[in-house]
């Protein structure tokens, strides 16, 4: 089969190669697309993000497992490294700033990292504090970066209570009203998010992006009234 040359062929190939996690090929296609005059936005929104969403859908159906998700995420991440500065150059407004971290006592970050990729793909500026992030570190980072949203991730039922500890720390620091709090992770539910006083919860990476956009929009609308 010949190399894709038209924009439609490149988009199709980008979609297909991201789906199977062929990182070198995705990178090559991204560069080919840019060289041929395609916009970063078109490759992102018409190929990369839909492909990663399909990966998520296949995971839900049981056709894909964690390795397939991760390998696809890596492929998309490589393309984003190339596209990110170009997207910034277009002058498009950032959708918002998202500060992310896995809570203290928890080292699990696979889900968090997938959410980061989807957020970046959707135009968020993501600041990732890593794993085992203590409440005071979240507070300091919020004071420094002034994000629109802070996301707390936990994989263990034993570390989920740190959501509440983090929110208490934000309240104590006088920051609670200045930032949207989202929570997520395998054991987390909407009910738990409500119980700890979070503003938002999402069950997967795609839903997290959608929810974050909704919450930011709602807050900005409220501020302009």
């Amino acid at each position: 089969m010949s190399d894709p040359s038209t924009p439609q062929e490149i988009l199709r190939a980008l979609y297909d190669e991201t789906l199977v996690g062929n990182a070198p090929r995705v990178l090559e296609l991204t560069r080919t697309g840019l060289d041929s005059g395609m916009t970063p936005e078109s490759m992102l929104f018409e190929a990369l993000i839909p492909s990663l969403e399909e990966v998520g859908a296949r995971f839900e159906r049981g056709d894909f497992f964690v390795p397939e998700m991760l390998i696809a995420g890596r492929a998309m991440s490589g393309a984003l490294d190339v596209l990110r500065p170009l997207l910034a150059d277009t002058g498009a407004d950032s959708v918002g700033t998202f500060l992310m971290g896995t809570v203290k006592g928890d080292v699990h970050d696979i889900g968090k990292n997938l959410v980061n990729i989807m957020l970046e793909g959707a135009g968020f500026h993501v600041i990732d504090l890593g794993v085992q992030v203590a409440p005071e570190k979240f507070v300091a980072a919020i004071e420094e970066h002034r994000p629109d949203v802070v996301g707390f991730s936990a994989f263990l039922t034993t570390t989920m209570p740190m959501f509440k500890a983090n929110i208490n720390a934000l309240t104590k620091a006088g920051l609670r009203d200045q930032v949207i709090v989202m929570v997520g992770g395998a054991p987390v539910t909407q009910e738990y998010a409500d119980a700890v006083g979070a503003d938002g919860y999402a069950a997967d990476a795609s839903a997290a992006v959608k929810r974050a956009k909704e919450l930011i929009q709602r807050r900005r609308s409220a501020m302009t009234v």
Binding site: G21, F65, V66, P67, E68, L70, I71, R74
Partner: peptide, 9 residues
Amino acid sequence: LGLDRFPQL
């Protein structure tokens, strides 16, 4: 975990 197919993971 797919480490046989994707050792980079």
